[in-house]
């Protein structure tokens, strides 16, 4: 089974963000990056399926040159090879043209299964996998916790709201968007890191894929959210903060 895993690189989760001078994007100086967490789970699911059923895992990543470190991490964890759609200006692409770009790269691979995270920690539109499926004419399912492969078909466990789940059967090829926490992530081994250096990374550009940026919705301004609620911040040393809080809990909240 050929499994394509679409993954992106995002600023590390604990980053403190500042808006850039133009007010259009974040100030990227001093940021460290990681594989988008749900995408890391998509990769994990892909690697596990390969271990069970054989085949190949191909990582697909659109991103600037620096995204190569995310790709190397995917290869070190066990992906067999990678495709890097290298572009320094991906922000110019709306979610639809970005989906078309990934679709063009995916089409050439004709995978049996495409996995990606259910949303990204940066833009977080939560749409890429679904758009990709529609552009490719493939069936899809979202918020996936578990994937079973039966001959020619898939049975997946979807998460619904309020602690409900549902199994859904669908034919292959298909696109699935994977939920964080669906399995335990592996670490890259030293051996894996060494092997990754010999694995193929094919670099392509968006024009080569025949896709141009489109602006169906333009991000005009990025800002700190307005606070609607006035939080009373308790200041001082930890001991003073604790004492102030207990005071509030006792006399105002009446929780003690």
């Amino acid at each position: 089974m050929k499994i394509l895993v679409a993954l992106k690189q995002v600023p590390a989760r604990d980053s403190l963000f500042k808006v850039d001078a133009a007010g259009r994007w974040i100030d990227t100086a001093d940021l460290s990056y990681e594989i988008n967490e749900p995408d890391a789970y998509a990769l994990e699911s892909g690697l596990r399926l390969k271990e069970q059923h054989g085949g190949e895992v191909v990582a697909l990543c659109a991103g600037p040159e620096g995204a190569a470190s995310a790709i190397r991490e995917a290869l070190a964890k066990g992906a067999d090879r990678a495709i890097h759609i290298q572009d320094d200006n991906l922000l110019a692409y709306d979610s639809l043209s970005l989906g078309r770009m990934l679709a063009a790269a995916a089409r050439a691979e004709a995978p049996d299964l495409i996995l990606t995270g259910l949303q990204s920690d940066d833009i977080g539109s939560g749409q890429t996998g679904v758009i990709l499926a529609e552009v490719l004419g493939l069936p899809h399912a979202t918020i996936i916790m578990d994937i079973e492969v039966h001959d020619g078909a898939l049975r997946v466990k979807r998460e619904l709201e309020d602690g409900w789940f549902q199994h859904v059967a669908l034919p292959r090829p298909a696109v699935l968007t994977v939920q964080s926490g669906s399995s335990k992530l592996r670490y890259a081994t030293l051996m894996g890191i060494k092997k990754a250096k010999t694995k193929e990374i094919k670099v392509v550009s968006a024009p080569e894929l025949g896709v141009a940026p489109e602006a169906g919705a333009v991000l005009e301004r990025l800002s700190l959210p307005e606070r609607t609620k006035r939080t009373v911040l308790l200041e001082g040393t930890p001991e003073q903060q604790a004492a102030a809080l207990v005071e509030k809990l006792k006399h105002e909240v009446r929780a003690l």
């Binding site: 963000f17 974040i26 920690d121 990025l222």
Partner: peptide, 10 residues
């Protein structure tokens, strides 16, 4: 955006 840390106008 960024898990609720920033807001974007589209």
């Amino acid at each position: 955006l960024f898990q609720g840390k920033l807001a974007g106008d589209y």
